[in-house]
Design a protein around this nucleic acid. Structure first.
Lengths: 246, 246
DNA sequence: CTTTCCACTTGATAAAAGTCAAGAAACTGC
DNA sequence: GCAGTTTCTTGACTTTTATCAAGTGGAAAG
């Protein structure tokens, strides 16, 4: 129940509208979404907020409406591995649907975000009731696993500059034709860890990429004059070819 | 287990018995399994056999009964990234259930294997019909995604000797108490690529591990006198602690 | 028994990435 | 606009891993 957050929580109708726009919920009827909205909460979270830590029990699924959230694991030695960074249209915490009471990772907001949480038992029930919805959840999980497979490949066969190139290419997939101007969606430090490298390495690798492909960087803004050149440099060390779907 | 089947399909009853033992099929009734067996095929495959290549359309799900199968991706430059190596109780090709016509990876037998194939449409139908089965498939996919998350973490925060240590610890999870004697389930070259390193690096890293933790190696046989020492050396660079499930 | 082949090891060297430290640039809050 | 903090960059150096090349050893075939 969201009555606890009068300042932050939106009306159920607003929440229901947001839920209707989630791709995952396409197979659901309005009555079902209304039921979800009844127990859901919408909250604005500031950069730096920790949504939950690893190893803590968790009962909720989190839908990102805007902003960016980092999922990460931390070792005893203090090293951090960023597993994913999510934005609008993505969700997380769905691991709980498979009986994991504890989250296997922590979640931290890296750019101011709006997030809807839904108790996971509601989704679990609906999966059993509606096999179309179950299939949608399965397909989503499958897509995520494939993304992880790609990530493993990237980290074994691509160099640091190539991984950055791949990251940039994903950002300019909508844009067509040179030149492309884009800006990094979150701090370079986070991008670095997202790509499995140290911030210093990121900085140097970006310089290398600049020399190799003629792109220009100023702060968080990147201008790509020649996308093809970037594709040639980057995608030679990959099993799929640009434009690669997720 | 090591019965040598001719390279032709076994009787349906035999296949059905094998299917009954698959953990994934626990929620299914015998009549359903009989239907699967009707269209399934059991085949003995030799080391080196290629089951399918990446980018080829595929209509089947593969269940490994014995032996080992490597799933891998290859880049234009010829580098290979091993995504997973599977044995009895595992299956693959289930990506097809989510509408991918082409396999995103290739599959090669790395130790003589017995494999059952089932047309994927049968499973797809059953997922829609039986939500318990759908949930089982979802849970399996979730487990796989978590494994990939772990893999990504390992490759970013563990050194080569530590990754080998982690691999060995997974192999001796059943064994309790020192000393543990085990032998590598497949060629060292494959283990190396499975762990994301070159064979030369594997060889040297194993020597390092030997010096650090006092284990002994002769060919494919590894003797661990002090498991705790190995755990201390390896698991300090990991977010979970031994014995880690999966 | 010997030849052949393949998997593995070892050595020398190069390349890539991490670490530590210092400085520059960008952003914040007054 | 300025002080202070954070983020990013750069330099010097170390460590780790890859690469290339030459062996070694063991299993299978003749």
């Amino acid at each position: 129940m969201n009555a606890k957050f009068p300042a932050m929580s939106a009306s159920k109708a607003v929440i229901q509208n947001h839920l209707r726009l989630q791709p995952l919920f396409k197979p659901l009827r309005d009555e079902t979404l209304a039921g979800f909205a009844e127990y859901a909460a919408l909250k604005a979270e500031k950069k730096g907020a920790v949504l939950f830590s690893a190893e803590t029990p968790n009962e909720k699924i989190y839908f990102v409406l805007s902003g960016w959230v980092k999922l990460f694991r931390e070792t005893l030695a203090g090293d951090e591995a960023v597993v994913d960074v999510l934005t609008a249209g993505n969700f997380f915490g769905e691991i709980g649907l498979s009986g994991h009471d504890e989250m296997p990772y922590g979640a931290e907001v890296v750019e101011d975000a709006e997030i809807i949480t839904i108790p996971r038992f509601l989704l679990a029930e609906e999966i059993m009731r509606n096999s179309l919805f179950g299939m949608a959840v399965l397909q989503n999980m499958t897509r995520q696993r494939l993304q992880r497979d790609m990530e493993i490949e990237h980290r074994t066969v691509q160099s640091a500059p190539q991984r950055i190139g791949c990251f940039l290419l994903k950002l300019c997939r909508d844009n067509t034709g040179d030149p492309v101007v884009l800006h990094l969606p979150y701090d370079k430090t986070v991008v670095a860890h997202r790509l499995g490298m140290q911030p210093e390495t990121f900085s140097r690798a970006l310089s290398k990429l600049r020399e190799e492909t003629g792109l220009r960087v100023r702060g968080a803004t990147v201008e790509i004059d020649n996308v093809k050149k970037l594709v040639d440099y980057t995608c030679s060390a990959c099993s799929s070819s640009f434009p690669c779907e997720d």
